[in-house]
Design a protein around this nucleic acid. Structure first.
Lengths: 360, 360
DNA sequence: TTGAAAGCGTTACCAT
DNA sequence: ATGGTAACGCTTTCAA
């Protein structure tokens, strides 16, 4: 039988007689033959490989995203060539190699990876999706959480909780995500006349955030409300507060993060945080990718996926907090329309405050 | 200029005149030309791609391994095609697709992935390295921590700490790793005449481990020493003990894990655990891979990388504990020869017990 | 429905 | 040192 027959057998929907099909399949079984996808991609000019670059996996947010992204992409028949940026030094030259594999698209999973490369890919006709980051450059898709609204809502919540001395643990300076969270936070506080905010740099790094917190808690006017640019740093800040400065959380100091990663609901931290819903964010990224792959002329979009304030035990709660479906919600000014409120919800879920559910 | 000239320009160490080299490079710059690694691999029959399959990334051990593995592989010019096994259902058919990309080797990063596929690859001449798992099947390389010794040492430590009622939170039944840890634990206890061990199934899953712990702590004879088959489950067990059963750790119950993942040293958990050193384990895996790639007839090896008991605050310590270089070590019976002990070490590092260093 | 032949971008080999 | 050409394993096009 001919090459063509074999090709058709392994091409879904090709016209091949059942008899021939069986013959080919049988021969393949005997010979241990597998179609070589690399050779295929040479002629079809589609590798069905998506390059994924990520800064670090220690921040669980990225592990979670990678896990879901991989699942969704695999479900659509894509495979994923992983690139993890080295700790120190410029990642670009190495990342560039990924492009040599003729990836169909590139997902940049990091608040900090260079956008020079993104622009270059884009110029070469390789769709790029920035995940958890934006850029001004045209033609580049991006998906982020609602950093601005999140920062603002955290500010509202902390003000309503009666806090007086505010601090912000920043990420990296060249991260649009961190900047937006900070801007939202500042705007939210400014709306209540608060302009003085202690600021330290955590660099999105656990150890560095711990040191920054040490400095913060040693200042003469110790803050009683700390907003961290992500959960990963918030854990370090909580460690510093409780273990090294003898502070009780939230009695002495309230700490709030951003992302709502897995460990945020672990009892050891029980972190109040603003969520970035991984499922919807990944779904948006994949949709953007497919749209672009189908029509390369489609205009680049920037999708903002809404999150919510997840009220747990690491921050003092305002008096008007309410229990709803086993969790605490705070309406504040910014609650979505139609969200439950008032006595009924509170009534029906009073057990929400039992220790099992995050009461403190 | 010819194709050959271009090829040589991009082949390190090929003989090409500087003038020609420049000419080619200049043309490439103008045209935006990049060598197509896919086409190259078609002829060289080496893709420089390593397939990496992993069960889940929520267990930080695997995120950490993936991060280091990626770094080491990239440093050697390999790239990594990632496959994450879906939560439910058989992963084999999907994983099989990875093989169609002509990967140079396959790393199975999971205590539970099927070994049928491993055998098949091996038959096709694709080297396979099992990471954190072994198999009886011949021809398959593997790297594990010292599960047996670890389990035994944990047993010794808990006995020396004066515990009386022991429990084991198991992983999955078809995991050689989990079985070895349990066997070591049982042997270690048996050496001291303890044969009664409460056993629950945690399935390597956070939620399941939490439920298992709930059952455990509700039993009439509550254990005062719990060994968990990995850290990931130990966190859940600690949460259950402290939050849902009002138990103090380690006063009421000692909890010990296995792996020494990042969060184990976070103050919220401060977990005593037996380490699996990620760096050396990955190094071993890569060495195995390269040896096999260089000489495909080399006999398969099974490398066991030694770990150590990392003494922190989640388990009651024996009286003969000693401070050494900022950390607590317990000599017990199993200490490596030449490890520091006695008054000098203890003396020189008394500050090891300050709060900053994990004292409790 | 099937087969023959061209061609995808590269390297290997052999001439020059 | 350089160029020509075959080959890698596949899909595509065209003819039968």
């Amino acid at each position: 039988m001919s090459q063509s027959a074999v090709s058709r057998t392994f091409t879904p929907g090709a016209s091949v007689a059942p008899a021939m099909r069986e013959k080919v399949l049988e021969a393949a079984r005997v010979l241990g033959y597998r179609p070589n996808l690399i050779a295929r991609s040479l002629i079809t000019r589609r590798s069905r490989i998506v390059g994924v670059a990520v800064g670090y996996l220690r921040n669980q947010f990225y592990s979670e995203v990678l896990e879901v992204l991989s699942e969704r992409l695999q479900a659509r028949g894509y495979h994923l060539l992983l690139f993890i940026a080295p700790q120190r030094g410029d990642a670009d030259p190495q990342l560039e190699e990924v492009l040599h594999y003729q990836v169909d698209a590139l997902v940049l999973l990091s608040a900090t990876l260079s956008s020079r490369l993104a622009a270059e890919c884009c110029a070469n006709g390789v769709p790029v999706v920035l995940f958890n980051r934006t850029t001004r450059g045209a033609g580049i898709e991006s998906v982020t959480g609602d950093n601005l609204a999140g920062g603002r809502r955290v500010a509202e919540f902390l003000v309503a909780g009666g806090h007086e001395h505010f601090a912000f643990v920043a990420g990296l300076a060249d991260s649009s995500t961190g900047r937006d969270r900070e801007r939202g936070f500042r705007e939210g506080l400014a709306a209540h006349g608060v302009t003085r905010i202690e600021r330290v740099e955590g660099d999105y790094d656990f150890e560095q955030a711990g040191r920054a917190a040490d400095a913060l808690f040693a200042r003469p006017q110790r803050p009683d409300a700390v907003f961290c640019a992500n959960d990963h740093m918030a854990f370090a800040v909580m460690d510093a507060a409780r273990r090294r400065h003898g502070l009780r959380v939230p009695e002495d100091v309230s700490i709030i993060g951003f992302d709502d990663v897995g460990p945020a609901h672990w009892a050891g931290y029980d972190l109040t945080t603003y969520s970035q819903p991984v499922g919807p964010m990944v779904e948006a990224a994949v949709a953007l990718l497919e749209a672009r792959l189908a029509d390369s002329a489609a205009p680049a979009q920037h999708v903002v996926v809404p999150g919510e304030l997840v009220v747990r035990g690491s921050a003092r709660v305002p008096r008007d907090i309410v229990a709803c479906e086993g969790r605490r919600v705070w309406r504040g000014d910014a609650a979505p329309a139609g969200s439950p409120s008032g006595r009924n919800a509170a009534q029906s879920d009073l057990e929400a405050f039992s220790p099992e559910n995050g009461g403190r």
